[in-house]
Design a protein around this nucleic acid. Sequence first.
RNA 1: GCGUCGUUAGCUCAAUGGUAGAGCAGCGGACUCUUAAUCCGUUGGUUGUGGGUUCAAGUCCCUCACGACGCACCA
Length: 501
Amino acid sequence: MNKSGDVGATEAELIRARRNKLEELRSAGNDPYAHTKFERTYPIVEARLAHEKLAVGEHSGHSVALAGRLQPLRRMGKKIVFADLADQSARIQLYFRAEQMGDGFALVDLLDRGDLVGVRGEPFRTKTGELTIAVKEAVVLAKSLRPLPEKWHGLVDPAARYRHRYVDLMVNRPVLDTMLTRSRIIAALRRYLDERGYVEVETPTLLTIAGGANARPFATHSHALDIPLQLRIATELNLKRCVVGGIEKVYEIGRTFRNEGIDRTHNPEFTMLELYEAYTDVEGILQLCEGMVLTAAHAAGVGAKHEYDGKDLSFAPPFARVRYLDALASWGGLSRDDVLDESKARAAAKRLKIELEPGASHGHVVDKIFEETVQPHLVNPTFVTDQPVLLSPLAKRRRDDAQLVERFELFISNMEIANAFSELNDPDDQRERFAAQARERAAGDAEAPEPDWDYVHALEYGLPPTGGIGVGLDRLIMILTSQGSLRDVLLFPMQKPEERA
RNA sequence: GCGUCGUUAGCUCAAUGGUAGAGCAGCGGACUCUUAAUCCGUUGGUUGUGGGUUCAAGUCCCUCACGACGCACCA
């Protein structure tokens, strides 16, 4: 029987061993949970920068206070312990020496990997060249009671990583770094837009009719109003209502919900940046979009060349541009009529051996053909422009070609990242396109959106000529942080609940 | 929703149908500049769930749960 209790190695026993140490700390008058604050000199990264120039063997001559989570301890006999301390910013080595700490050294025996500690001590550089804190005083700020995953492999089981993300974050540093980069990217985009006079707004997530995109919404219910509600599938219609009202450069970065499949590139809730600007058109938005992507890349530390998914991407502006019909012609061998004529499009799909759902609409057929023939070629950032109107119910027709619209989609690494167009502002045209959707819906197409007639009402007051864009931020971040799955750029991706026994 | 693969100690992983193992972590010991510290000793298991086949199942078959990947839906 030792002072921590002679215990085995079941999970319960590992926890008991740590609880025993907690009790010892308490009986020595050092209850970890009694602390309310700890004054740090600075985050660890700043401690590192401040002592960069310390020579091997040199001591700084002054004391600093740092706090963080203990990473592996290396015990060298009864009188010396090395450990690593990690905070949000970085890690640094700690050096506990009995001679130096006096009675305080007794506490070192009660430390475990995972404990949150505050230390005061002198920075110095060891003879192996590592910047280290020679600890004079240490205090446990919270005892970690659960055993941590292995120090070398970390936590790898995906289910455990997503369900217990806090563990993933504390033992797998790159995961934390990715999440911090995500935050930096979004902050940089916000700054970029704010500097250019765009106004950030927040529009409702709960709506009576979720419109502005083709997607199945989540359904919910208001007890107070006793009415069914839907979670938004886009912010588009409300943002354009803002433009009607006079907010000329408006954007929202917000969560959008779509009740559909989940895979590497789809999560039921995702973050979209939608932006609308009065008195500009799709070309103005294209320029802005390129600027936003480059800003995001810069924030992520990505330069002109970036490897993703085994492919070399070039972020050097200007990004490539290709017209929708030209792309289908060169990669799919399709003529304009093969696309725009419904029966010819169906014949083309058949020729290309593309499988289609029985009730697939003309738009769906064309979309599918594009996906199969063109999309695999769109590796470098590429703007695909001038889509057919039949794919674009909210976009303005081209003046030189009424069957096409002023629109672009940005593809990177074969994924659609952004979708933009000159907004349709003709209320009569909009009403007719909504009516067509209503007919599709009545015919049994559950995906066809329910028309939002108040939006037409708003257009009747006059929407200025407006350019707008939606950017899937999660996907952009996934590419810029070199992650293979949306799940790896979301702190808490959707997981099925574990069944309770 | 369909298909393929996976699930073994706290973590990372082994194990021809024939006595469930290792490394890390833990515990005990040695060690005053280590960094995946090292060395000696040692504890720890309802092999995801429920059934079946078999003298015998971690291993073969079926069910269910969860996960990864692919397909479908979608961005």
